[in-house]
Simulated scan of single mutants.
Amino acid sequence: MTEPIKHDTVLDTGAEQLGKTYARALIGAAQNEGHGVADTVVEQLGRLVDEYIAGNPKLAAALRSPRVSENEKVRVIDRLLGGEFHPLLIKFLKVMATRDRLGFIAAVRTAADSILDDMMGRMVASVRTAVPLDDNLRAQIVDRLSFTMNRQVRLIESVDPALIGGMVIRVGDKVFDSSVANRLDAMAHRARAGFSSKLLERFEQFTSQ
């Protein structure tokens, strides 16, 4: 069965444009704060969307609800986020709250990622693995991709248990695929360190081709 073609709606376009407007304002303010602040606030904005909002439907509903007063939204931001995030990001969220724009925070995050990547000359690589990457393996993948592509690389990670013994990396239109189709019972008992070592070996093989 053929899926229907999805067309952008006026609402989608409006959210995208609003997201870009606020994202530019956030990044501009962060650059004025000093070196590295833009990276920090954009990373924290992503964590806010992925962990705090996506993981807490009640919080998400409260932030976007017109029935919750602006003052209450500001109090929620202070109470839940004040000690966790950069003061500039907290101030930015409060501005969005007073303008009843917190329902667009995901659009701001998407735009901020894209704008900052362009400014930094970074490429985005999506990485799909059978288990979450540890810090060491993540760093080695970034270093190897950066060397191969001769550009800074930012990873977007996802986990797919079907990729036992392998991973799939996409950079633009280029796909590096080292996934293993066979599911062997022994793999399920493989130590995490051993798995990471084998994964890195395959990664080095297909990036050196």
Rank of each mutant, 00 (worst) to 15 (best):
S126Q: 12
T2M: 12
V74H: 05
D117W: 08
G19R: 08
E204D: 05
T2D: 11
M119F: 07
I164K: 11
S65K: 10
D134T: 03
G172M: 02
D160R: 11
R64A: 09
D177I: 02
K73A: 09
E51K: 13
E157T: 15
Q31K: 15
L80S: 01
L116S: 01
A112M: 01
V68M: 07
A60N: 07
I5H: 13
L26H: 04
G172L: 01
K198Y: 05
R79E: 11
V42P: 04
L133W: 03
K91M: 01
D78N: 09
E201N: 12
D134Y: 09
N182D: 03
Q31I: 00
S146D: 01
N136F: 13
T129F: 08
L133D: 06
R138V: 08
D50S: 13
G46Q: 11
T21E: 04
G121V: 09
A193K: 14
F92Q: 02
R202M: 03
M187N: 13
A111C: 04
A97S: 05
M187A: 12
F203N: 00
E3V: 11
L11E: 13
A193W: 10
T207H: 04
R170Q: 10
V168T: 07
S114E: 08
K58T: 09
I53A: 02
S158K: 09
E3F: 12
T2I: 15
K58L: 06
I77Y: 05
S178D: 06
